[in-house]
Design a binder for these strands. Structure first.
Lengths: 238, 238
DNA sequence: CGCCTGCCGATTGTCGACCGTCGGCCGCAT
DNA sequence: ATGCGGCCGACGGTCGACAATCGGCAGGCG
């Protein structure tokens, strides 16, 4: 039997309505198109999308469990508001997962190390392209792709799941502040030393690179002198 | 105005129906009262509890996101089935979080160390009591309380959230196998050395204690010669 | 004049019903 | 006998409607 590339139409809208709604809302939140604290009324969204409230409700519940929305009893959900300590928590948790994943990759021997290195180099190339284009959203998205790829290389799906939640929260913070990219070159370099340490199998250097990178990133987000956003809307409360 | 201890009636059924259902089902799964692979039809549960399908549906969705149930498109949900590699993933992820939490506690200085040590000693005492009673369910529950307490002492709510999911999965595995407690004394000792290393601030010893403890526990769960459960029902598939 | 109390609009929590889809069984053709 | 296609029961996904609950505001009482 001929192969007849039918596999290209494998997926035929294989998503439930609630999942698609959740996906869209998630993207809107991540991209900063929804202001922190903004109320999301089920009925309004349902009417806007021309669906019933039930799937909207399920989508909102998903996002609440991903900590992108907060639910108040009988008062609906509103977009999450990140405080400085939230940001430190997020980066601390990311550090926990990334460090462990890096260690496990090194434990996996040269083969696992090589595969992880290759994947990371590919993402780094995409990061170069995004930087050249200058699109903030894309840059931060690819940046997180890099770290997600590192975690995924450890081969533990539960770590990936946990990390994806933190990743979404991180992107939300970054895109809200529209923080200036730390010179671009710096971003490439920081990820470069991480790859080098991984390729060389230098555990201490690798863990230090991860820790430093995340600490620097968290500082940028919590320090008040973030550039951009001149409209007086504060990126962080309190 | 007099204080008039009204604070004692603070909570007046402050839970939504779906949350209570989720709580109950979660407990049933954790305690092994639901067989792996068992189908959970929404309508049946709804009728059983004399509520509508809506809150049942929300409860099920919560548990799916906690990885205690698996959802199949248009085929409802069924109780999760853990493979050996799942168990390794769970313990690996737990190791990631616990190790990091332990490190952060040590970073927090002597004060944080002392607070964490006190909390852990209290749980260890509860563990002794549970061991004396010989109730398997309670022993494993308190065991996980110990580890949860360790993570909580790091003061990062996101780590606690992630850990609670892993904790529930771990308990489910343990209670399904009804694995024989490794002599009881051994359990106390393993946690004891962990506390000692923490109290002494010996980072390397602490991390090694956590890693060893989790590795041993995972081995017990995945090795086929687990005692108990003689009814031919396999605790793990494949 | 300030605080408490009762009402009001808005929104959620819950309900019962309909429709589409899925997996399994039966019958038929080969 | 076997492989295939079509039917069938069951279940989930979705919908519109009802009622309970909450925050805010106006009015009354001290």
């Amino acid at each position: 039997m001929a192969v007849s590339g039918l596999s290209s139409l494998k997926t035929l809208e294989r998503k439930s309505t609630s999942d698609r709604i959740a996906e869209d809302l998630r993207q809107m939140i991540i991209e900063g198109r929804l202001m922190p604290g903004e109320q999301l009324a089920e009925a309004r969204i349902a009417e806007l999308l021309d669906v019933s409230r039930a799937p909207v409700r399920e989508a909102l519940q998903q996002l609440v469990q991903q900590k992108l929305l907060v639910a108040a009893r009988n008062r609906g959900v509103s977009v999450v508001t990140f405080t400085a300590s939230d940001i430190w928590e997020i980066y601390d948790a990311r550090c926990a997962i990334e460090s462990h994943a890096a260690g496990r990759i090194l434990d996996g021997g040269p083969g696992a190390r090589a595969r992880a290195t290759d994947a990371l180099r590919a993402v780094l190339e995409r990061l170069r392209v995004a930087l050249k284009q200058g699109d903030h959203r894309k840059i931060s998205a690819v940046d997180l792709d890099f770290h997600t790829s590192l975690v995924a290389s450890a081969g533990n799906s539960r770590l990936v799941d946990a990390y994806s939640i933190l990743s979404a929260q991180t992107l939300t913070c970054i895109n809200r502040l529209e923080i200036a990219i730390p010179s671009g070159e710096e971003l490439i370099d920081e990820h470069g030393v991480l790859i080098d340490a991984l390729a060389a199998g230098e555990r201490e250097a690798l863990l230090k690179a991860i820790n430093d990178h995340l600490t620097v990133a968290a500082s940028h987000l919590t320090s008040p002198q973030s550039q951009g956003r001149t409209d007086g809307e504060p990126g962080l409360p309190r």
